[in-house]
Structures are given as C-alpha cells and as structure tokens.
C-alpha cells in the first residue's frame, strides 16, 4: 500500500497521542501520599555568657593572691566557680548563660585575699541570664584592731549617745569616735594595733561626766569589748547635793581650815556630794572608782569658789542629757 505524506503524518500524530497522553483519561488518586518522614531539620542555639567584673582596691596591703569563689546562696558548699587570681590581674569571671541564680541576691561572690590578717569579702548579688554584672569595689584591707562597747550612765544604766571617746597610744597618736544614740561605740584602729597593748581609751571627754579611762590590751586579739559607765553611782547621788569642780588640780582637803592636809587633787568635772556648808567651805563626799563595780567614798572639803552646783544633771531624764554633753 502506498501512503501519502499526509497519511504518514496522521499515523505519527496518532502514535504520539497514544504514547504521551496515555494518562489523559487515567484517574487521579484522591489524596496525596506521604511517607510520614520528618523533614530535615537542624537547630542551632546561640548562647551568651555572663561577665562578672569585681574591682579590687588595695588599702596599704598587697596580698599574695586572691581566691575567688561564686556560690549559689542555696548551696554554699559546691561553688559554681573557683579560681585564683594574682594581685596584678583584673578579676573578670566568665560563666556560661544561665549559670547563675536570678533570684534576688541569690548568688554569693567571695574573695579570700591570701596573706595575714586579711579577712574575706563577700558580695551577695542577683544573677542574670546573660550579660555583664559589675560588683561593688572590694576594699582589701588588713583586719583592723577593733575596740567596741557601750557607754551608759551609772546612775540608772541609761545608754548615752553623743559621748566623745578618745583612744591614745603611748606615742600620743589619737583616734576619736562618738557613741551612737543607743550608746554603742566602735574604734577601728590600724591592723598593727592588734599586736600592741599601749592604748588607753577615755570616755566622756568634753562632757560634764568625769572622764573614765581604760587600758585596751590587744596582744594579738583584734576585737576588744570595753564598756564605760559614766557618772556617779545611785548610792552616791543620794548622799547630798551634787557639785562639780570647775578646774583641774582642785584641792580636796581633810578639814575646812586653810592649809589643811589635801587628800588629793580633783580634776575638772569631778563630782562632790555636798552634805554640809560652812561659810565658803563645802563638806562632802567624793566617789573614787577602783574598778567598774568597786568604789570608795572619801570625805573632805572644797572651797565654794572651786565648784558649781550641778543640779540633777546626772540623774535627769534621757531627754535632758544634752545638758550633760556640754
């Protein structure tokens, strides 16, 4: 059979239709078919760190090194961080994110200076998830020699505030402080005083109370407690009207006669409980304390011109004590 070119084309076209469009009438499955295979995934976390800066101030000392610890306040046994820093190094601590407690003051930073008489320094601080924390300056100072105690009125044991106290060593170097409203006082003397025993502490300087002085003997201790009872005892106050001497070196004589024997010389502000008056001579008692709880009353005479009437300065209510501090 002879075929024309048109017939050949028709056959080719028909063959093409049947071969490539064989699925033209094929049904389509209704649902997509999944493998239930998870997609490829990668997770990358970026973490920050915590940078703690702990500045140090050395005050007349140079430790050999610093031991630095950071604790969670709930666990002061196992440190979160521990390291040794040399004195010339800055104390910078780097921790991973979330290493610290974010509770208020939930972490403790401790520096142990390595050397004699240098106490540890602690800072409580609140942590952050990440970022910078600047701690307060840590002053590295040798353990001071501390004298502390209370000042009170002997008459009724009321605490005395505003009383001047002076600590003086054998070379005349002096340190000053005043008692607080609740009678507390505190001296912080340089570290070397902790090994000395030549310090005298006086209370009541500049007040109407007679000055009381006591020895402060450290001898290797760094914390002394010394209390001061000022003024006359209750027993003494009840013996007569109270006068105080105007000046130092006031004669306290055995009899009223001029030139009679002098028991001893009174100091300014010493108190006399006057029981009799004879002309311009006053007879009374002076209370001498051998220790805080041991005293003796000695009779004698003073000239009226050497004393002033003290009224009830030493037994007044607390509010009137301002008078006594003049």
């Amino acid at each position: 059979m002879k075929t024309t070119p048109h017939t050949s084309l028709l056959i080719l076209f028909t063959a093409f239709i049947f071969s490539s469009c064989g699925y033209m009438f094929a049904p389509k499955y209704s649902d997509p078919i999944y493998t239930q295979r998870a997609p490829l995934i990668s997770l990358r976390y970026e973490y920050q760190d915590i940078h703690i800066n702990a500045p140090i101030q050395l005050v007349n000392t140079l430790p050999e090194a610093f031991q630095v610890y950071i604790y969670d306040r709930e666990n002061e046994v196992d440190p979160i961080f521990a390291a040794t820093y040399m004195p010339e190094e800055k104390i910078d601590v780097f921790l991973p994110q979330n290493a610290l407690s974010t509770d208020k003051n939930g972490n403790i930073f401790v520096i142990y200076p390595q050397g004699p008489d240098m106490p540890e320094i602690k800072h409580e601080f609140t942590g952050v998830r990440y970022g910078k924390i600047s701690l307060p300056v840590s002053k590295i100072i040798k353990t001071p020699a501390v004298i502390e105690g209370i000042v009170f009125r002997r008459y009724d044991e009321r605490m005395l505030g505003g009383i001047q106290l002076v600590a003086t060593d054998s070379t005349g170097r002096t340190f000053y402080t005043k008692s607080r409203i609740d009678g507390d006082y505190r001296f912080e003397l340089p570290n070397e005083y902790g090994y000395r025993s030549d310090i005298i502490v006086s209370a009541g300087v500049g007040s109407l109370f007679p000055v009381v002085s006591k020895d402060a003997v450290f001898n290797g201790k760094f914390d002394l407690g010394i209390d001061f009872a000022l003024g006359p005892s209750k027993d003494f106050v009840d013996r007569g009207n109270l006068y105080i001497t105007k000046n130092n070196l006031t004669h306290f004589r055995k009899s009223s006669a001029n030139g009679s024997t002098t028991h001893f010389l009174l100091s300014k502000n010493d108190i006399i409980a006057v029981t009799q008056v004879s002309g311009n001579r006053l007879f009374g008692l002076v209370e001498v304390f051998w220790s805080d709880d041991k005293s003796e009353m000695i009779q004698g005479w003073v000239r009226e011109q050497d004393v002033i009437y003290a009224g009830n300065y030493f037994m007044s209510p607390q509010d009137d004590l301002e008078l006594a501090k003049q």
């Binding site: 997609p39 990668s42 997770l43 976390y45 970026e46």
Partner: peptide
C-alpha cells in the same frame, strides 16, 4: 511540598536558629 509538623523543645538561650528542608 509535604506539610510538616515538628515539636521543638526551646532551651533558654539568646537565639535559636531552626533550619527546615521540606520534602
């Protein structure tokens, strides 16, 4: 692409970059 559902346990960090390749 096949839809995908994935549970991520996000840890406390500054940033999490999650890369997915769908099928």
């Amino acid at each position: 692409y096949a839809p995908a559902t994935h549970e991520i346990s996000v840890q406390d960090a500054k940033r999490l970059v999650a890369d997915f390749i769908l099928n």
